[in-house]
């Protein structure tokens, strides 16, 4: 099953809605609660990155019996130095985003912590695709 959710850029009032919908879907299919929690924390961070950095984009949920996949896709500025972006505390969030309590530089680290596998495909000036994979079951 594939489901797509558009995410608007800089719209902080609607931010988190896509992850919330993803959570409801996972709950309804009866995925393990702990898995849902991890997916949602990571999906929320990915969604916030679309809102804060990318001028919006799309969240895609792919469901299979052995795997939950969340993809955050955008046509934003891209990430020049992925390794740096992965470091805890590093952030390029705007002052506005920081004032609102975002941009602590934990987003990418949180995604990595929660997902079984995290892939980043990015090109400066073209956009970024973050793929988060979560193995279902007890491993």
């Amino acid at each position: 099953m594939i489901q797509r959710f558009p995410v608007a850029g800089e719209d902080f009032s609607a931010a988190g809605e896509a992850s919330s919908k993803i959570k409801n879907i996972l709950r309804q299919v009866g995925e393990d609660a702990e898995l849902i929690r991890r997916v949602c924390i990571a999906a929320y961070e990915a969604e916030m990155n679309l809102v804060i950095h990318a001028g919006g984009g799309e969240m895609i949920l792919k469901l299979d019996t052995d795997m939950v996949e969340v993809i955050a896709q955008d046509r934003g500025p891209g990430i020049p130095d992925v390794e740096l972006a992965m470091q805890e505390g590093y952030s390029t969030a705007s002052d506005l985003a920081r004032e609102m309590g975002f941009g602590a530089g934990m987003g990418m680290a949180n995604m990595k912590r929660c997902a079984s596998e995290m892939l980043i495909d990015t090109e400066v000036g073209k956009g970024t695709t973050v793929t988060l994979r979560f193995k279902t079951g007890k491993n």
Binding site: M1, Q3, I25, R27, Q28, V29, G30, E31, L63, D64, T65, T136
Partner: peptide, 20 residues
């Protein structure tokens, strides 16, 4: 767990697709 569509994950995912 009272919110799920089916006790079997594969069936639940199929039903979720139908639902959407």
């Amino acid at each position: 767990a009272v919110l799920q569509l089916d006790n079997n994950l594969a069936d639940a995912i199929r039903k979720m697709g139908e639902l959407e």
